[in-house]
Amino acid sequence: MPRFLLALLLLLPVGLSAQTAKPAADAQVHPQVVLHTSQGDILLELYPDKSPKSVANFLQYVRDGFYAGTIFHRAIPGYLVQGGLYTRELQPKRTHSAIASEADNGLSNLRGTIAVARGTDPNSGTSQFFFNLVDNRRLDFIGNQSGPTWGYAVFGKVLKGMDVVDKIANLPTRGQGPFASDVPNPLVIITGANVVGEASSAPASTAAAPAVPAPAPAKKPGKSKT
């Protein structure tokens, strides 16, 4: 009997090691991206396990160098900060095809999360994204009855740099280009983006014509084009 108990005790550290190692392994499946902006850096953690299409789409734009030279064209304190399509001349860049919405992934539009921006069609998201400044639960998936009830797909969160996002949100705004209001003044430029652990991508072309329509979102989810 003593030998049997000793054997069990010797096995315990191995089991505990396996359990403690598992979260570290799980953490590695969440890629991280740094957005370099004229107001500071924003470090993101992405959730491919919950939003595989949205994450793959975002990472493709990052690796293509697409976001270099784009701006945050919409900032509304107490709501969101949005960008990822327009150049500093307020011209839209050419995008890849739109992706299917993953808003029904169980993730909520809480403060600090990043979500796919889209038009009235839930499946119209391309390169645009937005940061939630507050808990915007009204932007969560409710059902597939209509565009508003579909909500907006969260695919990651800010790990570091939420103070930068808040700084952008608190800048003065004005109407500029195709936008009647909410454009930060001065313009906030995304100078580059890279996946942590990967080499930075070269800046991409800034072709003016978008492949799919990407209108700016309205202020109320019921009429949203986020």
Rank of each mutant, 00 (worst) to 15 (best):
D140S: 05
P52D: 10
A56Y: 06
P31N: 07
A68D: 03
P122W: 09
A21P: 03
I99A: 08
G112E: 02
A18Y: 09
G69R: 12
D49G: 03
S146T: 12
L6C: 02
P52N: 09
R118N: 14
D49Q: 08
D104G: 11
G78R: 06
P48D: 05
R137C: 00
Y86H: 11
R137L: 12
V34W: 08
F129W: 05
N105F: 07
Q60E: 14
V29Q: 12
T120S: 13
V134N: 10
L107N: 10
V33Y: 00
L85M: 05
F58M: 09
L139G: 01
D121H: 10
Q39K: 13
F72L: 06
K50F: 13
T87E: 10
A27P: 05
F72M: 07
A98V: 01
F66H: 03
F129D: 00
L80Y: 01
Q39H: 10
N136Q: 03
N105P: 14
I76L: 10
R138L: 12
S97W: 01
V55H: 02
D135P: 06
Q91D: 10
L90M: 15
P13Y: 04
P52K: 13
F129I: 04
D26Y: 14
D135H: 12
V14C: 06
V34E: 06
Y67W: 06
N123V: 05
A75N: 05
R74P: 02
A115Y: 05
P23A: 04
I142V: 14
F131R: 00
F58W: 05
A27R: 15
T113S: 10
S124N: 04
L9R: 03
